[in-house]
Design a protein around this nucleic acid. Structure first.
Lengths: 207, 207
DNA sequence: GCAAATTAATGATTTATTCAAG
DNA sequence: CTTGAATAAATCATTAATTTGC
C-alpha cells in the first residue's frame, strides 16, 4: 500500500472510527493537548501525526457545515418554489427577494464563542517530541512519553501517558499544575470506548 | 507597559523596519527555515517568536492585497461611471455588463505557483528550541544555536548561526546536506542591511 | 475478472474573515 | 483605527471508489 511511506496520511479503519466517535461526542476543535492525546492513542493503530488529527477535525467540521448548508439551501429553494406557486395563484405583486439562492452561504451557523482558551491552537503549538516507548508493541502495558515545547513560556514540559484498563491515563510527571484545560491526574474520558451517547444530531442552535 | 509580559507581541521599530524591508525585497511566505532565521535575527532587538513572524507576513500580505483591491475597485468604479456618462451621451443600447462592481474580488492577483517546496510550512513545522546564546549581548560575536524538530522525519536537527561581518552566517553543524532550499555554509542574504533594491511595485502579472 | 480512465472523497495548504488588544 | 491572533472558507492535490471497455 504505502511503499516507503506515501505522501499523505490515510487513516486506518480503527483510527477513523475513533475519530468519528470523538467527533460525535462533541469534539470539534481539539486543543493542543487534546490533539497530543488523541495522536498518542491513535498511533497505536498505525502511523499518525498530530497535524493529521488537527486537519481531520478541521476538515470534518467544515464539510459537516457544508453539508448542512446545502441541505438548508435545498429546503429554501423548495419553500421558495412553493411560495412562487402561491404567488402565481394569488396574483400578487413585486416580490424581488434579494436572497441569493445560489449563494451557498446562507445559514449563519453558530460559531462557538471564540475560545478564550489559554491553550494555543495546534499550529502555534508544541511539537511532539516522542522519546520512544510508543513503538513498544510487545507489552500490554503501553507507556507513552513525550515532551511539549511551549513557544510562549519557552519551556519544555514532560508528559507521559499509560494505557491501562482499556483507556489512557495521563500521568503527572512533574507535579506542577499543568495549566491546561483538562485537570491533570485524572483519567481522561476522551475515548469513550463504551460509547453510549450517539447524538446523531449536533445541530446546536446558532448564536 | 508589559508587566510580566503582555498578551500579544508588539514589534519594536527596528523589528518592523527589518520585516518591511524583507517584505519589500520580495519575501511573502517565508519557509520554516526562513522564519527561524528571521526570528533569530530579530530576537536581538526584542522579544519575538516564530509565530509572530509567521503571522506578520500573513497579515501584511493579506492587507496589502486588500489595499490593492480597494484601489482597483475605485478605479473600476470611476471608469464605469465615465462609461455610463458616455453611454448617456451616445444613447446606446443594452450594455448589461455582468461585472459585479461591489464584489471585492476583482483582480485575479498572481498567486505564486503553489509552492512545491520541500520545506513544510511553519505551523506544521519545527518549533524553535533555542538553547541560549542569543541573549549574550555583551559579545560582538553573537552565536545562535537551536534545534529544529521535523514532524515528518521525526528528527531533531541542530542549527547554528553566527553574527559576523554585520550579517548572519549559517554554520553547518552536522555536515549533512540540509535538504533545505538555501544552500548551507553560505552567507544568507536575507538581511540586506545595505538595502539597494527598493521595489515598491510587486504587481507580478497574474498567471 | 482486471486495469486504464473517470469520478468522488478527503488530506493538506493557502486565503479571507473575524475578534479583540492597545 | 491599527494590527496581532485565531478561525473559517476556499482551494489544491492525492488517494480511494467507481465505471468502462476488453
Amino acid at each position: 500500500m504505502s511503499p516507503a511511506g506515501s505522501s499523505r496520511w490515510s487513516p486506518t479503519t480503527e483510527q477513523l472510527m475513533i475519530l468519528e466517535e470523538l467527533y460525535r461526542s462533541g469534539i470539534r476543535t481539539p486543543s493542543a493537548s487534546q490533539i497530543q492525546q488523541i495522536t498518542a492513542h491513535l498511533s497505536f493503530y498505525g502511523r499518525i501525526e498530530g497535524k493529521n488529527v488537527f486537519y481531520w477535525f478541521q476538515n470534518h467540521k467544515a464539510r459537516d457545515r457544508q453539508k448542512l448548508r446545502r441541505k438548508l439551501n435545498k429546503q429554501l429553494q423548495l419553500q421558495q418554489q412553493q411560495q412562487h406557486q402561491h404567488q402565481q395563484l394569488q396574483v400578487h405583486q413585486h416580490c424581488q427577494l434579494n436572497q441569493d439562492i445560489t449563494n451557498p452561504f446562507v445559514g449563519n451557523f453558530g460559531y462557538p464563542p471564540r475560545s478564550t482558551t489559554q491553550d494555543f491552537p495546534f499550529y502555534n503549538s508544541p511539537s511532539l517530541l516522542f522519546q520512544g516507548g510508543a513503538a513498544n508493541t510487545a507489552e500490554q502495558a503501553l507507556n507513552c512519553k513525550w515532551n511539549v515545547y511551549s513557544p510562549q513560556s519557552n519551556l519544555v514540559e514532560k508528559k507521559e501517558m499509560t494505557f491501562c484498563n482499556y483507556g489512557w491515563t495521563l500521568v503527572d510527571v512533574n507535579h506542577q499544575a499543568s495549566s491546561c484545560c483538562t485537570p491533570p491526574l485524572k483519567t481522561l474520558d476522551l475515548f469513550p470506548l463504551t460509547a453510549t451517547r450517539v447524538k446523531e444530531d449536533f445541530t446546536t442552535p446558532p448564536k
